[in-house]
């Protein structure tokens, strides 16, 4: 067995996992609070990538320092994606909070369709190349065959985001309100928590994470189009289900497991079936352990 090849697949699996984790967090948080699969979450990742690309190209064509461009592009992408996330919730989900869950899901599919075609019509259906802005880290020289600077950047950003996010949820007042709402939204409301604010905030954080993922992965892969969000969104959802939907630690664990499965699957089995592994994992997990790796199985009350 080729150790180098194995190592390469392992590291690229971790990269995939990091990106899935950033997106899966949004899914699982939204599900935890309003019990809705936000089908359009992948589109926020795509919108983040597009906004990032536009800003980054604007800046780099006018000769601004690449690192600065990358940082500014990421920040603007975060702002825009969060704004979209909050707007979507207000328009398409809020009026449906009391109706059937099927209605909300169909509405989410509508949002996804709308956003994809919005970008397709106003931008382009072709692949756009993302400017190469990631600096080359000198200390990676000895291992450059296995590990690129972009990958290191993705690991670092994901780790920082996850740490920050854990602190937010565990130790701040907003985090407490979020946890309370997800446990029992009626009771939380009685105790003076503004549910609407909490839900908006959840969408905001989730979309911000998706935007970070979008900009990072596009600057690594180098090209994007309007369709990138859909399949990644579904895979991140699979990751969230795998970890146990509603559980934040589960989402991260599930993402890394899925990332590794995909990476080794494409590396050792066939790259034609790249998109297949996620669905196989999904079907297996839902058949044998529907609550996911870290999820608690809900008891049904009559």
């Amino acid at each position: 067995m080729d150790v180098g090849y194995f190592l390469k697949l392992l590291l690229s699996g971790l990269t995939r996992g990091s990106i899935y984790a950033l997106i899966a967090l949004g899914y699982t948080m939204v599900y935890g609070i309003i019990k809705l699969i936000n089908f359009a979450h992948g589109e926020l990742y795509m919108l983040g990538a597009f906004t990032g690309l536009i800003v980054a190209s604007l800046m780099s064509y006018s000769g601004i320092n690449p690192v600065l461009s990358l940082i500014v592009a990421t920040i603007i992408a975060i702002i825009y994606s969060s704004a979209y996330g909050v707007a979507i919730e207000k328009i398409a989900y809020k009026p449906l909070r009391k109706s059937q869950r099927l209605s909300a899901l169909i509405s989410a599919i509508g949002v996804s369709m709308f956003l994809q075609n919005f970008v397709l019509l106003f931008q382009t259906s072709d692949f756009l190349s993302f400017p190469n802005l990631i600096p080359t880290f000198k200390f990676l020289k000895p291992v450059e065959n296995y590990l690129s600077s972009a990958q290191v950047l993705i690991y670092i950003c994901t780790a920082l985001f996850l740490i920050g996010f854990t602190i937010l949820v565990k130790f701040t007042k907003t985090g407490k309100a979020m946890r309370a709402t997800s446990q029992d939204s009626k009771m939380a409301q009685l105790l003076g928590i503004s549910i609407n604010k909490v839900i908006s905030f959840t969408f905001l954080i989730g979309s911000a994470a998706a935007a970070i993922g979008g900009v990072l992965i596009s600057s690594q892969v180098g090209q994007i189009n309007f369709y990138i969000g859909f399949i990644v969104g579904i895979k991140a959802f699979v990751a969230a289900v795998l970890g146990g939907i509603g559980s934040l630690a589960g989402a991260v664990l599930g993402s890394f497991v899925l990332g590794l499965v995909e990476s080794f699957g494409t590396g050792y089995i066939s790259s034609n079936y790249e998109d297949l592994f996620a669905f196989v994992v999904l079907i297996v997990i839902l058949t044998f352990k529907p609550a996911g790796l870290l999820g608690k199985s809900e008891k049904q009350k009559v």
């Binding site: 328009i91 398409a92 009026p95 449906l96 109706s99 059937q100 209605s103 909300a104 169909i106 509405s107 599919i109 509508g110 949002v111 996804s112 369709m113 709308f114 956003l115 994809q116 075609n117 919005f118 019509l121």
Partner: peptide
Amino acid sequence: QQYRMLIFGFLLIVMMVFRP
């Protein structure tokens, strides 16, 4: 035709909100 899918997406949302 070009705006077909955009409008269908929007229609899905409108239908769900106003006339499920």
